[in-house]
Nucleic acid binder design. Structure first.
Lengths: 205, 205
DNA sequence: TTGATGTTTGACCATCTGGTCAGTTGCAGG
DNA sequence: CCTGCAACTGACCAGATGGTCAAACATCAA
């Protein structure tokens, strides 16, 4: 199992193909629902060959999840304490909507993991994720205290942004089934959610 | 497989025990992740005995899902076109929060199903669910047109209620991990979400 | 060309899992 | 007490699945 830093061209290509295929399969079927044969077929490789690049099914899943966390936290990390409060929060919202639109499989992979009790991500959630949220919640609380935005619980503000944006990726089939054809769920959601938070955060008169 | 309408006391008890156990296991592991052995163990029965009451794993899952839909739609169904608009919508929100608090496993079962593309629920979603949402969306749109609440897209209003309330059931472990101890997520969420929609729906001055 | 290393595969294995079945046990009505 | 049906079980099966391995094949520098 060659996983030192020295990767040949073929190694890089095949590892990439496997991760892409695994994302497709894991996000649609969950960890236990996915099979190595499905992943191998989707990657255009034989099963033993897949296991030549990754030690186990677990290892593939783990590689996906660790690669995911940074991208997942980036939008919140970019929230600037020195910026204009409402613009910063709406910017965060917009970035999250875009991520849901452009990376729905990643969102579903994450949702699957949390739904099952986050067995393989608890550490990251209690560590990195919580630390970042704590930090940004303090920033938002400060903005509220200064009267620059309405007084809201910053944690639940963040949760509500997660809930609203991820919903459109995770429950995509339901949203589309209910809306019927001729809709662009993410575009509509974007402006709806923006309105929602604009009204919520308007400072008291 | 005795599933006529005539059920003995033991039949009722054991079927109930199996469904309860299956809800626990399916909601935590997803359909493919769950095994009959787990369900049988959780129900305190042997595997063959479980299959004496239900024809297959599929049949158990199906029984759970069909029993679920009605309870799931009830809160929206209760939204009264003749009532006071804001009170009706906030009442719907409150009912959904309570359901997330009291039936988180059912919420996760549902979430698992939708996440995987709703393979066993598409019909119900495109049928019953869509019909009910269409009906209530028309009611809400009417309220908006009359200026009794702000002008909002009624579909995305309903989606946002689903997203916010179900998030606290489906992502419970994440919410608790981030909040840390000493919190009552559902109580806090309840008042946060109520505030959110109150501000959103306030009619234009 | 050749050897060495990296890549790929068919065949195989142990285990798990949904499901079957013949037969045993329990129980209620006569 | 007995009979007949409901309830239950151990043993078993076939297919799926994660993973192994020896051997074959490709690639490339010397």
């Amino acid at each position: 199992m060659p996983d030192t830093k020295s990767r040949t061209r073929i190694q890089r290509q095949n590892r990439e193909a496997i991760l892409e295929a695994a994302l497709e399969v894991f996000s649609a079927q969950g960890f236990r629902g996915a099979t190595l044969d499905q992943i191998a077929a989707a990657a255009g490789l034989s099963k033993p060959n897949v296991l030549y690049y990754f030690a186990s099914k677990e290892a593939i899943h783990h590689a996906l999840l660790s690669g995911l966390l940074d991208n997942w936290l980036a939008p919140l990390r970019a929230l600037d304490p020195a910026g204009e409060p409402l613009a910063e929060i709406l910017g965060y919202v917009r970035r999250k909507v875009e991520i849901s639109r452009d990376f729905p499989r990643e969102s579903r992979l994450f949702a699957n993991e949390i739904l099952q009790g986050a067995p393989r991500m608890m550490a990251a959630i209690e560590g990195e994720l919580k630390a970042l949220v704590d930090e940004k919640a303090a920033v938002i609380r400060n903005w509220s205290a200064q009267g620059r935005i309405a007084a809201v619980d910053p944690y639940h503000l963040i949760f509500s942004i997660w809930a609203l944006t991820q919903h459109y990726a995770d429950f995509d089939v339901q949203v589309r089934a209910v809306l019927g054809p001729g809709h662009d769920p993410f575009a509509e959601a974007g402006s709806f959610i923006e309105t929602l938070f604009t009204k919520l955060l308007a400072p008291a008169a």
